[in-house]
Design a binder for these strands. Structure first.
Length: 282
DNA sequence: CAGCGCTTTCCTGTTT
DNA sequence: CAAACAGGAAAGCGCT
């Protein structure tokens, strides 16, 4: 009933919380001396598994989020349920499939996956952003979590293109990108998305938050102050506290991004307007 | 510059 | 008693 197999990840008890945060989130989540704060942020990439053919569903989602983050696009603007597939299936999608599945984001996603497929590198250059391949993080566990390889996916949208992909020019992609999908949402991450991403990355979640009931979107803060510090780090605000973070969380109730869970301390629940916290949310 | 969305900060009171 | 929870109020900040 309750599947939290993915969420529960043991953490070596010998390390301090601080070192956990540094080692697990450090290179991906801090921007040491980058004036724009951009390169190291975008540098948090699929650095280990450059072969998308072997991605798990989880990694496909990770990739989706990364591309959206890189382009500062709100992840709610993409139908994650259309990408309920593993890397092999993802790689078999045609350009048209991407258009069907992701609309205006299709070209960007298609270009990204195409480059990853062919080069095995991650030279992603869309708009003004560029990912520097020299960043080489040694840690990137990505254990393939819980998705049996034989799992069936019924591709309604599967119109596998013949030999040649109708690859659009980079210029076209850039044009359609800047015309259509430039949105607000600074750095692509709101608080609730930040929380969601911690939950969705159990490999990088050193026991900070855990699912209470994944199917219901219920989760609990295990180390509330540590999460607050991490959030503060992301926002370059060293004085962030759980007190303040939780005020922001409470504002989400009205917007139905979170639902109230009363009587249970540090427990929250994703609401109807929170997207992307499970494979197929309707 | 204005206005807006999303927090951030502070505070007082209540609940666990 | 120490944490959390609850919201109101207002300031701050990035973006269109």
């Amino acid at each position: 009933m309750v599947h939290q197999s993915v969420a529960v990840m043991s953490v070596t008890p010998s390390t301090t919380l601080d070192s956990q945060l540094t080692t697990i989130w450090g290179p991906t989540n801090s921007y040491p001396d980058d004036p724009t704060g951009m390169s190291s942020y975008t540098g948090r990439l699929w650095t280990c598994d450059s072969q998308p053919q072997f991605w798990s569903k989880y990694q496909v989602w990770e990739w989706l989020q990364q591309v959206m983050d890189m382009n500062q696009i709100n992840t709610s603007s993409i139908p994650f349920q259309n990408f309920d597939m593993d890397g092999h299936q993802l790689c078999n999608l045609s350009y048209q499939d991407f258009i069907h599945a992701a609309g205006s984001m299709g070209p960007i996603l298609f270009q990204s996956i195409t480059e990853l497929k062919w080069s095995g590198q991650y030279h992603v250059e869309i708009g003004q952003l560029e990912v520097k391949p020299e960043l080489n993080f040694s840690i990137c566990p990505f254990p393939d979590v819980s998705y049996p390889p034989g799992e069936i996916y019924d591709p309604l949208i599967h119109t596998l293109a013949p030999a040649a992909y109708p690859t659009p020019s980079t210029l076209d992609i850039k044009r359609s990108f800047s015309r259509q999908v430039k949105k607000h949402n600074p750095r692509g991450t709101h608080l609730w998305e930040f929380i969601r991403d911690i939950l969705l990355n159990p490999e990088r979640n050193p026991g900070l938050i855990k699912w209470e009931d994944w199917s219901e979107g219920v989760f609990r803060f295990l180390k509330s102050e540590a999460v607050a510090q991490l959030w503060g780090k992301k926002k370059n605000n060293s004085s962030m506290t759980y007190e303040k973070l939780s005020r922001a969380m409470r504002y989400y109730y009205k917007r139905e991004i979170l639902e109230r869970v009363d009587g249970r301390r540090l427990v929250y629940k994703f609401g109807r307007n929170a997207r992307g916290w499970r494979e197929s949310d309707k």
